[in-house]
Amino acid sequence: MKRTIWITGVNVIDDTAELAEASQERTVFTEEALLIEAASLTIRQAARSGLKPAALAVGVDGVVEGWQETFFKRVLVDGPLGASPLEFPFTSPNALAARLSIRFEIKGESLTVTSGSLSFLKALVHAAELVRGGIAEEVLVGGVARGKVITLLVGSGQGEFCLEDFGELGGAEQSLYSIGESFGAFTRALGNVRSCEFSEQPIVSFGDSFGSSVYFRFSETSL
């Protein structure tokens, strides 16, 4: 029997000043703090419906490169003493997913997608595949751009939006030139679902400048 896949707890955060006041987390980098804050919100929202993520899928682009440069330039200046053991793990793109897994004790699959502007949306497709395949019941999905993050929960339980269909390829209506742009495009697509007058929701598709694309078809639930 085909599983119904839900999306819930969508949060986008890019206000670092507000976060600095609110967050009690000890973090190394701004985007790490943003991601943990957004994930906390998503997990709290999901917990109201009794949902808890068991796996992770995070899309990252354009952030880790900056951390690598900072780390290495310090080594160039200070030699071995410039290599910070605290910052070194963050030169690997999976560091953000690792922080989420540790912070929220998520012990299932943990994937980091680094596929340019489609990284977050491909992470979402991967998460939906995990749910559809019965590998995980609920997956925390994140997207990380410079100074901006998105989190949401994909699951088989219940949620605000039903993910009727999804996949890769199929042509793209909207071209995305950065991962940050994909957060806005995705949340607008969900907003359109709420205001749509059609009984059959249209497919929304997003592509990158290299010809890759992903598509989704959502519907609103009665929750």
Binding site: V113, T114, S115, G116, E168, F210, G211, S212
Partner: peptide, 11 residues
């Protein structure tokens, strides 16, 4: 290659 292309990074 014209199918899905994905880059992943899990250390």
């Amino acid at each position: 290659i014209h199918g899905p292309i994905t880059t992943v990074s899990t250390a």
